[in-house]
Nucleic acid binder design. Structure first.
Lengths: 335, 335
DNA sequence: TTGAAAGCGTTACCAA
DNA sequence: TTGGTAACGCTTTCAA
């Protein structure tokens, strides 16, 4: 019969101390003489002792898990974001519980499951959690942070790219690049971030003196992603001079769609997309884009989580992350 | 003072039964009269009772967690694979513990952490776990399955795309498409799957009567990914007629690199890449590729996990997943 | 069918 | 500084 696994009891016995001392030695928590500490640690290593996280979590009412809610991680921007979050989560000594959702119902179930694992925090990168459910989390002292979500639930912290500033950069670039007629490309049923970018674009153009009622048209893609952009392009006879696009996938599809018609940027139109995905930098696209600082977004998300864990009742906070214009090939140099 | 959370005890009291009965009602495990079952379930719903997974796992010595080891999920193929795995894991009622590793050391630590959470299984999509460590898992009855790894550790199951068959398809396509001189493009320090594809390509050409000693050259990219492919292209004066490439990212980079020199497929050379990533299908590339069936790979991975959980001592198995040639624009029609 | 009780492996409080 | 002990919340014998 094989011993299933080494427990604190085993270590205690072998080191000639009590379980309690073992716990203290390993957790640096509670007073213990340096000598015994050394000895226990040595024995623990000898025996290959590993704390049982389930037991630890049960006792502490909190696991070292952080729940992450994502969707469609095939999308390059989303996988970049997940990448950044995983790195940050691991850097802080947590493990990521990742769930991909396909509906709001799945989001609810997931949030429950996270709670059942007594996670140390939840990061929502997709969907809109119902306020009631989030309140349950808050009541259980589980910090929740939303990324690029509309900051509207009390007790939840948010990290968002500064969409408005990004849209303004795009507007300025296009105007100074000589455009007179503008287009805003987004897909139907867009996210909050997408809609926000569109509204801010209009506003920024207004302030730059553009008569947006006349000279700004909305191009609506029938679906999201590359294919949506391509379809939007095929529905157009002659593109506006300066086009701002809600995200990179849409922009790449649109550009390819126009090329199929023999039109290209920057000669026939200028194009700026949001999200600086790797693909937009490639030779075939060299798209001017707005870069979302994924590393900074991830860093702030964890920071909010940790701070709220320390003080659960503090007021909600929203961090806006600076967005940069990456000037490439699909927009003209400003004069 | 707020009640932290509803426990089985609470439900038991309210339903006028014992904790044990509550457990039976919820787990469908152990005999219980339909009437009390109904009643308990009703009360549980009323009170919003949720099983504490930490306590459950501690008692059962197994959590409903499955550990997944990944790396560089920015790569479109890898994020597709992760996507498939997450779907399959959730479909079976598990939660995914995802860790991104950057070194073999991190792999070891991760494997330990997974064990500490008493995961129901581990899926390795990157790195090469040391046999000793895997044996610890095996001893703890934790099933391990490797995806596209060299199947060489006893007690571990594997799921691999049929690289050899894929390479043979590519060879045949290129030969029948009229190529006489061939190239194999891979990056330095390639994975086992990559090397295997290269060897199989040579073998297949041999069998098709090509004098590979003379007419097959190896193009070595100095790094992986798109940039590596581009660099490989820039080191070439005149490309071989038919090029097979270890993966899609490399292939896209190579194609763009050649285009930069004014050469394009299929007129100046033919190109077939492994991994049918979304990008390869796009208008700018329309690359002929070998499709890895991610859904099937994921399905089999979970199947192996579940079967080995049932019978931990069964001999290791390796499933080879069929690969399909997607004929697109970078190879000529066969005559 | 039901309930009592003994774990599962930790941690934290309280005496010593 | 240490050890005993009572949780943590659940599952699973074993009797009744």
């Amino acid at each position: 019969m094989i011993k299933q696994s080494v427990t604190a009891e085993d270590v205690a016995r072998r080191a000639g101390v009590s379980r309690a001392v073992v716990s203290r030695a390993l957790s640096n928590n509670g007073s213990i003489s340096p000598a015994t500490r050394e000895r226990v640690l040595l024995v623990a290593k000898e025996l290959g002792y590993q704390v049982n996280f389930l037991a630890q979590g049960l006792n502490r009412r909190r696991s070292h898990l952080i729940g992450v809610i994502v969707s469609r991680i095939n999308d390059p921007f989303r996988s970049s974001l997940l990448d950044g979050l995983l790195g940050e989560i691991q850097r802080h000594g947590f493990q990521a519980l990742v769930t991909e959702i396909r509906s709001e119902q799945e989001l609810e179930d997931t949030l429950r499951h996270f709670a059942q694992f007594r996670v140390s925090g939840v990061i929502v990168t997709s969907g809109k959690p119902p306020e009631a459910l989030v309140n349950e989390c808050v009541q259980q002292q589980i910090p929740v942070v939303g990324i690029n979500r509309q900051p509207d639930i009390p007790g939840v912290d948010y990290v968002c790219s500064d969409n408005a500033a990004g849209a303004a950069l795009a507007a300025e670039q296009l105007v100074r690049g000589g455009c007179r007629r503008f287009g805003w490309l987004n897909n139907d049923n867009s996210t909050w971030a997408g809609r926000m970018r569109g509204e801010a674009f209009r506003l920024a153009l207004d302030e730059l003196g553009v008569d947006t009622a006349r000279n700004l048209v909305t191009l609506l893609a029938p679906q999201e992603g590359y294919d949506g952009g391509m379809q939007a392009a095929s529905a157009i006879k002659s593109p506006p001079e300066g086009i701002f696009c809600a995200n990179a996938q849409l922009a790449c599809g649109f550009l390819d769609g126009m090329r199929q018609q023999g039109k290209d940027a920057p000669q026939d139109f200028q194009l700026i997309g949001f999200d600086n995905t790797p693909q937009t930098a490639q030779y075939g696209y060299r798209l001017t884009t707005l870069n979302q600082n994924v590393a900074e977004i991830s860093r702030l998300a964890l920071m909010h989580l940790l701070e709220r864990a320390r003080d659960p009742l503090q007021p909600s906070r929203t961090s806006w992350v600076k967005v940069d214009l990456i000037h490439r090939h699909t927009s003209l140099p400003t004069t």
